[in-house]
Computed example of a mutant assay.
Amino acid sequence: MKVKLYNGYGWKSLGPGRAPLRCPKKTGFIVLLTSVFLLTTITYISEYLLKTAVFPDTLYKKVLNQIHSYYVVPEFLSASGNQNILAPDGVQNSPTQIPIKTTDIPIYHHVAHPSNYHFILNEPDKCSQWDPFLVFMVPVAPHDVAARNAIRSTWGNESSVQGKAVLTLFLVGLSGGAEAQQQLKEESRQHRDLLQSDFVDSYFNLTIKTMVIMDWLATRCPQATYAMKVDSDMFINPENLMSLLLSPNTPRENYITGYLMLDRPVVRDKSSKWYVAEELYPEQKYPTYLQGMGYVFSNDLPEKIVEISKEVKPFNIEDAYVGACLKQLGVAPLSPPDPSQFRDYMWQYNREDFLKVITTILRSPQQLIDIWKDVKSPIKQIKLE
């Protein structure tokens, strides 16, 4: 009995009791494929083990990851799911249209530099129309409408203080979905005070957020005399702040003041939200900087900070990073004439205290509304629940 067997190249006849004929070409091809697969697997596993062994979960690794995702797919498209979001100049962005400026910025600096981000929502002519003396720039989470509305109804509603024009704007990052993005567009259309850039909005990216604020001030609002970066959970007393800025002793160049942070150690505890790895910031202490809750500065500084940031490796503590940029510039943060006006927390409400301060942190948007109403009311009508 003869049996025919297909060996991949043709039919071979086999005699009784004979093993199938082997084809060396086919066997070699299979061996080659197996070898390639094994080498690929070994390489992948080795690369993974090397990364996890050498690099902790720090900004450095996340910077590289974000650079990779930025090159491949614009973050605002991947996060929002909306392929029709436009850059401020009206040109639709795509992976091939986004200008990447890396010639004079080291790769680990690239992700934090504001030239790599684009405004989805913008108010480019706001300052030319308003001609503000002072601009409040408020970084806030996209979903935190309550905080924005509380500010709009309180200190952010002050458009003129002691005869000087004041402007308040909010900056957000990516909203995280098409529905949320549409809501932001509606909010922007209603209030005309919302800026949105295409970075992922997270606590870890506050350094990016702050640098985008500085860049907007430098490029879209150079006519302002002063600006203030102020968090969305803050009480601001604009009258006291304006008195400080209008003082003849207050410089109008290379000036920045607020709650001074002196000789602060770098946190190396990996379980802390303030952890910074040595490869990002090798010094054991930060240079003097201003607590990020709210600091005011002359408006010549944003352009200088953005430019010098090309030489300062970014790390994830935004206010300390600004301090590192200032140190590189040779600009020393100054203590305010009355340091007690820049407060962190006041644990009990006292109307007289709030009449004296410039800043303090609050617990909720509703508390801001209640305190503002009380502070602005005549003394005989005081009633705070």
Rank of each mutant, 00 (worst) to 15 (best):
N7W: 02
K12W: 07
R22T: 10
V31W: 09
L32S: 09
T34V: 14
T34G: 05
T40F: 15
E47W: 10
L49A: 08
K61S: 05
N65T: 05
Q66V: 09
V72A: 12
S78F: 13
G81P: 11
N82F: 03
Q83A: 05
I85N: 00
I85M: 03
A87I: 12
V91R: 12
N93S: 07
I100H: 11
K101V: 15
Y108M: 07
V111Q: 02
V111C: 02
H113I: 08
H113K: 02
P114G: 08
P114C: 00
Y117D: 04
N122H: 14
K126C: 03
Q129D: 13
M137V: 15
V138M: 08
A141T: 15
A141H: 12
R148L: 02
I151A: 08
R152V: 05
S160Y: 12
V161D: 08
V161T: 14
G163V: 15
K164M: 14
L169P: 02
A180V: 03
R189H: 13
R192N: 14
D193N: 13
D193T: 06
F199V: 08
F199L: 08
S202G: 11
L217M: 10
A218C: 04
T219Y: 04
P222D: 08
Q223E: 14
Y226Q: 05
K229F: 07
K229Y: 03
S232V: 06
F235S: 01
I236H: 03
N237L: 01
T250M: 15
N254T: 11
R264F: 09
S271Y: 12
K273S: 12
W274R: 01
V276L: 10
P287F: 11
Y289A: 04
Y289F: 15
M293P: 06
F297Y: 14
P302M: 01
I305L: 04
A324Q: 04
C325G: 09
K327Q: 15
P333C: 10
D338Y: 06
D344Y: 14
Y345P: 03
Q348L: 04
V357H: 00
I361T: 12
R363I: 01
S364M: 07
S364R: 10
Q367T: 07
K373H: 00
K373S: 08
V375A: 03
Q381D: 13
L384Q: 02
